[in-house]
Amino acid sequence: MCGMLSVIFVILIFGFLFVESFTFLKNFGIFRFITGKHWFPASNPPSFGILPLIIGSILITFGACIIAIPISIMSALFISEIAPENLRDFLKFLIELMAAIPSVIIGFIGMIILVPFIKKTFNLSTGLTAFSGSIVLAFMSMPTMISISEDAIHSVPWKYKEGAIALGATKWQTIRKVVLKAAMPGIIAAIMLGIGRIIGETMAVMMVTGNASNIPKTIFVPVRTMTATIAAEMGETVRGSMHYRSLFAIGLILFLITFIINLIADLFLRKIRR
């Protein structure tokens, strides 16, 4: 029953986004919308190309994943397998606390501390870059990733470890070849949830990435994400206008991207379970 309800909600949300953006997509053309290189919704004639926004979102997400995934898996392994019991409890508490920090606060810290730091270390004209966004998002997604991976690693049955030890495996071999593999479905679920949080995050990104809608050539230039565009411009649009509907269309594309990511993860999980 509840399962059905959540499916209905997802369909309703999709339907709502679709209805709101349908006339826009029909008039402007979905291909022009996705592959257009310029986002000038207020100029005359307006240009609604979201390629820079899509690339901005993907670039930041990719950077954040590269930072967050290895650190998260290693932290989870350390907490679950290596740390003594009291340290383990303390670290778990700390990580759950980290997860509870509101994103705007993290964005704030990023803006005040991280952005100037990046400007100085890499000698850039501005510290508001995709790279800053990636760091901030990695920091935000790590608590989720660590906490869920740790649960998955911790619930690997003792009998697997015992079996590996009895065959002469060292602690590290046991962790790498048995524990990690047994926990893999859970770890992938953790990573997917983390990516979901990264790609959908708005506030913190808006504060540290500079919001310039250019197609970035490196990770050290300002970018604008899809989420930040919706959040920043929704207030200024006229209800029912082309611009207003184009923001819904961005939402629709974002929804499709996260949907595809989850679908891939699901297929992948099924493959390893078999």
Binding site: E162, G163, A182
Partner: peptide, 12 residues
């Protein structure tokens, strides 16, 4: 070598 009470193949 050791064989345990409950069969414990790895999930591999």
């Amino acid at each position: 070598g050791m064989v345990f009470q409950r069969p414990n193949p790895f999930p591999l």
